[in-house]
């Protein structure tokens, strides 16, 4: 796949211009400077026009559909339609870009919130043996100082944290979900171990 040196709609407009002046589609491809030289080479060698067009990497692959019948159509009507479609593509790209920007702001917000909740939940998870000791103090009147790191409670904390991050990631259709969830698991376990070490060394000696 070869990339063009310009955006799709500029390519379409230039193609339309060339066709309007009476060139056929092969000639007009020659005359467009933004087409990479290897494609010009292929044109020299006389390769099929549809194959050359399919080897171009368009942002909108459906442009190929648009060009599929330019060979055997009336010039004027065709050119007009190509122009308007190019204009539409340009407008659309602007709108989508705007939307993307709006979503990116949300993404940044969500990222901060994700990390804050992640760390908070992990810290609560680390301190949870303390809380459960309070529970057993109320229940039995005995303050147990046995720390079990691999308890059902810590598993459920991990679950809550993963789920929370999953939902927040899914909300904005983030990519690389597995990788990011992996980071969450590692961070969670790391923070829990650090808090546990702190607890058993400094608080409950």
């Amino acid at each position: 796949m070869v990339k063009l040196k310009c955006t799709d709609h500029i390519f379409l407009v230039k193609l339309a211009n060339q066709i309007e002046t009476g060139e056929n589609i092969e000639r007009s491809l020659f005359l467009i400077d933004e087409i990479p030289p290897e494609l010009h080479m292929k044109l020299y060698l006389g390769e099929d026009i549809t194959e050359i067009l399919t080897s171009i990497e368009f942002n909108y692959p459906n442009i190929l559909n648009l060009l599929s019948s330019t060979k055997n159509a009336e010039v004027e009507e065709n050119v007009k339609r190509m122009r308007t479609t190019a204009e539409l593509i340009r407008k659309r790209e602007e709108i989508l870009q705007e939307k993307e920007n709006a979503i990116n702001i949300q993404k940044r917000r969500l990222k901060i919130i994700r990390y804050v909740t992640l760390i908070t939940i992990a810290i609560i998870a680390g301190f949870s043996p303390l809380f459960t000791n309070i529970y057993s103090l109320i229940e039995n009147g005995v303050f147990q100082s046995t720390f079990t790191f691999f308890s059902v409670l810590s598993i459920s904390f991990l679950l809550v944290n993963i789920l929370n991050n999953y939902f927040l990631l899914k909300m904005v259709n983030e990519r690389n979900m597995k990788f990011k969830l992996g980071i969450v698991v590692i961070l969670h376990i790391g923070i829990v171990i650090i808090v546990n070490l702190f607890l058993s060394n400094y608080v409950l000696r």
Partner: peptide, 21 residues
């Protein structure tokens, strides 16, 4: 929800009760 949930979990449940899950 997860914050409150985790606090409640830590406070009212014994460590090894399965109903935590």
């Amino acid at each position: 929800l997860p914050l409150v949930l985790s606090l409640v979990l830590a406070l009212i449940m014994p460590q090894d009760s399965l109903s935590i899950l």
